[in-house]
Design a protein around this nucleic acid. Structure first.
Lengths: 182, 182
DNA sequence: CAAGGGCTAGACCAATCGGTCTAATGCCGA
DNA sequence: TCGGCATTAGACCGATTGGTCTAGCCCTTG
């Protein structure tokens, strides 16, 4: 990773997002985290007073923002909902090939954390944000409220499940194929 | 858990399946595991010479067998693929409410393990087994080979993704609603 | 230049991690 | 009743865990 130029706090967030995504919250130790970010322990607890859990929340937020941006760029130039959704799937398939077969960053980071209440509600909030973003585009592209809700949730489930299957197979093909099911 | 009457080995597998499913492989320590199973450490390493990782493999296999049984009972009495798939979704929604909002046991147990190669290939094998089971029923119920493959993979993705969304919301409703998307 | 604070640096800590090993227990057929 | 094996029991181990704390660097401001 060429994470040298970034400020320490950002390096920590980026490293955390990467490592949690591949090995899960409990699978990553502070030692790994600090080595990846090339930061000493003091910096971690300066920027994130509650340590690992604070960092995990920040990493999840960062990953969510990336996803929201990906959704936006996929739907912005689309003429129909299906077009936008298809573009999103292809972008995700490419991302899958680049990053290399890891999990949904939110699930990996937040669904096993120690403080259930805080972590879980953050995960829920993030997922609903993705769905809402897709739903807004759906309505803008002509679907009525009911259709938009159903389609956006459907797409979420397909992506989430398709990503898991792709991971097991180490092959992004299924993510591309699933555009036929929209 | 009324796991008293079972032999030690089965108690260990059952406890492992439960705990890994809720907290993930790395989120569960041997101490928790042994306390849940009411077994001493010696028994663990007697029945599972490679310790935690052996136990995780066995727990995943056990969970997979449960899932295969659920698929079979859902489709056995069905007249159409859609009927069978709908029944499966409703059974899963009920299971979700009973077990209480945990993850896919396979993903939680095998997708973060230390020995990537062995764990990942086992996960892949299990998932393909589920899909194959559904595909066989689909063909038996009249779908051609291409349709059967597409439908079975589609159902897998919906369930996997729907379960995740249900978990975030702590509400199984979305699993039931997704029968409209078949 | 001096002083202050944001940030870095890593030694240090108790607790827990997964795993090994020896001793004793319980149960079996001979 | 005895020998022998499968299993249980848990003390013990070094390594690693997440977290705390003090010292000092370095950059900015007066």
């Amino acid at each position: 990773m060429e994470t040298k130029a970034l400020p320490t706090k950002d390096r920590l967030i980026l490293s955390a997002a990467t490592l949690f995504r591949t090995r899960g919250y409990h699978g990553v130790g502070l030692a790994d985290l600090l080595a990846e970010a090339k930061a000493p322990k003091g910096s971690l607890y300066h920027h994130f007073p509650n340590g690992k859990s604070d960092l995990a929340m920040a990493a999840a937020t960062w990953a969510s923002d990336e996803m929201l941006r990906l959704i936006a760029t996929s739907f912005d130039g689309a003429d129909t909902f299906r077009d936008g959704a298809t573009t999103l799937c292809y972008k995700l398939a490419k991302l899958f090939d680049i990053t290399g077969w890891d999990t949904c960053p939110i699930a990996a980071t937040l669904f096993e954390g120690p403080d259930n209440q805080q972590f879980r509600s953050h995960a829920s909030h993030i997922y609903e944000g993705w769905i809402a973003e897709v739903r807004d585009h759906a309505e803008r592209l002509g679907l009525n409220e009911t259709e938009a809700k159903a389609k956006s949730e459907h797409l979420f489930m397909l992506i989430q499940g398709g990503w898991t299957l792709a991971r097991a197979r180490r092959d992004s093909e299924v993510i591309r194929e699933m555009t036929a099911m929209l």
